[in-house]
Design a protein around this nucleic acid. Sequence first.
DNA 1: GATTCGTGGCT
DNA 2: TAGCCAAGAAT
Length: 359
Amino acid sequence: MNMPVTEILLKWYDIHKRDLPWRKSREPYYIWVSEIILQQTRVLQGMDYYNRFIETFPDIFSLAGAPVEKVLKVWEGLGYYSRARNMHETAQKVVEIFGGKFPHQYDELLKLKGIGPYTAAAIASIAYQQPVPLVDGNVYRVFSRLFGIDIPSDTAKGKKKMIHIATTLLPAGRPGDFNQAVMEFGALQCVPGKPDCSRCPLRKMCLAKKQDRVEELPVKDKETKIITRYIHYLVWISNGEIILKQRKEKDIWYKLYDFPEIPDKKGIEPRKLFRGFLGKHGISYDQHAKMFISEPVLHQLTHRHIIARFYHVYNKKWHFDMDEGNFRVPMDHMKNYAFPRLITAYMEKFPERFQSDNE
DNA sequence: GATTCGTGGCT
DNA sequence: TAGCCAAGAAT
């Protein structure tokens, strides 16, 4: 008996699919939220965020009506914050233009901020049962192995080829289930590295398996070069208040909050940098005021190595000009602001450095 | 087409 | 352990 690939995957999915919160309904809003959260993010990592997001913003109207800062606070720690900013913008647009209903068509969905080819196809097929194929990392891995395709996944040629394959396999009856089936299969069975092919329902027809190339596929050609960046944070705590700053456009962590920065001067010693900065503002690096410089904190991103230091100053009057965007808040209001993980991790590690009575 | 944009788990 | 890379999109 020679069951086609599509049937095998659907059957496998019906048995093995995980019970995930966004699979309990086909409400487009839930599908949309889950798909955005899951971009470049593992299910386990996104689960709590999804539940909290839906709890905080039960429908598209509550999301559209919220300030973007509140959306970012819910997103805090999840990364790729443009996803949250774009969701907020798209929610407002969908409310204004479409009365709160997402369009059904792939092409219309694609016009919305934060919705690209993958997500448009996911919403159209899962929420609206439209026969639209999709390709994500899982789909690419599954089909590249199954059909022995070694075109690099990070090329237009590879993506085009994969969409073509997905199109030929897509069943008219259950497009949304099929798309999810391939992704689920990639996440649970045809995993990166060394999958357990002995219990794979496709092992007999898998070309990579036949050619013993399972671990080689899929192929990717570009290597991301990592750049090191230095950040010097000024943590100024005085009179129960701390100085914060909202991050600006065209840089990492846009619209999140952190601390004022001392501009980096390559190669200069931290102590010298601090002294120079304070001196420029008429403050001496002296024994009377309590100041100290943290050890370097390494924060690793996919494309950056950030080395941060925290320059602490306590109980000294803030008497140089507030740069644009700097503002003071009581220490116990900090919990209302969204910070990058680098900051929250540091604060969790050294809570004593963030106490207002630190004299 | 090449870069940028986070975080965390796994090997 | 240091890299790999995950339900990608925007610029």
